[in-house]
Design a protein around this nucleic acid. Structure first.
Lengths: 146, 146
DNA sequence: TCTGTTGTAACTATAATGTTTACAACGAGG
DNA sequence: CCTCGTTGTAAACATTATAGTTACAACAGA
């Protein structure tokens, strides 16, 4: 099972807000770039808002970043959209048989090991800021423009 | 979305086969330890078989390892049960708007970055063998037995 | 007040997962 | 050679997460 596209959608939204910071970024407008429906955008935007990453103007509409791109990393976004509960990337089968030595102990041992794997991934996300991403994105945009 | 419990089930099964190598390990018996129904066990066992990790006796029943525990790592199991297609841990929203500079380029840039995150996780899995796991498991079993 | 936008709810469709029941095929042992 | 337990697989079902669609009250600026 993949990690929900809410994460990449969230990253897309924030990249847009960073690059198009002078535009009037309504959910409808963002939906046009992401190419999904505006309600999903609003849902994700709501999560980004609750995480303190963006501000959404009610009434007049439009969203903008509350932090510098250099101060937002991909793990912040990952957490914000709650695609995976903290420490729960791997789904464990519930209640292995406590009568069986393996069943009784495998969860503890495996949880420890898999946490390390998960942490390794999250550290990579943590080390990449929105600014890094936007810089690479702008380079790519220029490459393709020429 | 979490990574399917097929993975932890697969690990559980192989740990059992490794520790209880002299038992007659039928799907029914394994199901008792994992505490899920035997059909799911057989499905996972089938995937492990296709990956060349185990052999299942038909007719008389019972499964056993085809490799030494030291020669099976967690990434092998992860791949075997196909919880995640290779390189596809993160779900991308399909077809962002190619008219938009961000939409047209974000996939390429983000794919590169997220591959690194995914690789980091998989490297951890790759570096842990079934033997390592079973060793830790046996220690844990002894700790709890005393 | 009018207008465009947000936030949210309800309903729907789709997909993946896992359970249960069922049964043909298989192979060992009597 | 026949019975018995087991495997492999299919079908039907329940559950859950995701995402699209429609709808509408609340909001704020012109």
């Amino acid at each position: 099972m993949k990690i929900s596209s809410r994460f990449t959608i969230g990253v897309h939204i924030l990249s847009l807000l960073s690059i198009e910071k002078d535009s009037h970024c309504t959910s409808e407008w963002i939906a046009g770039s992401v190419n999904i429906n505006p309600v999903t955008i609003r849902r994700v935007l709501g999560q980004l808002k609750r995480a303190g990453l963006v501000k959404v103007r009610s009434g007049t509409g439009g969203a903008y970043l509350l932090k510098e791109p250099a101060d937002i990393n991909l793990l912040d976004i990952y957490r914000a959209v709650e695609v995976v509960e903290e420490g729960q990337l791997f789904h464990f089968h519930e209640e292995p048989n406590p009568e069986c030595p393996v069943g009784a102990n495998i969860q503890i041992v495996l949880q420890l090991i898999l946490s390390r794997a998960q942490d390794a991934m999250e550290q990579i996300l943590k080390n990449i800021t929105l600014k890094d991403l936007v810089t690479e994105l702008n380079q790519q945009i220029n490459v393709r423009a020429n």
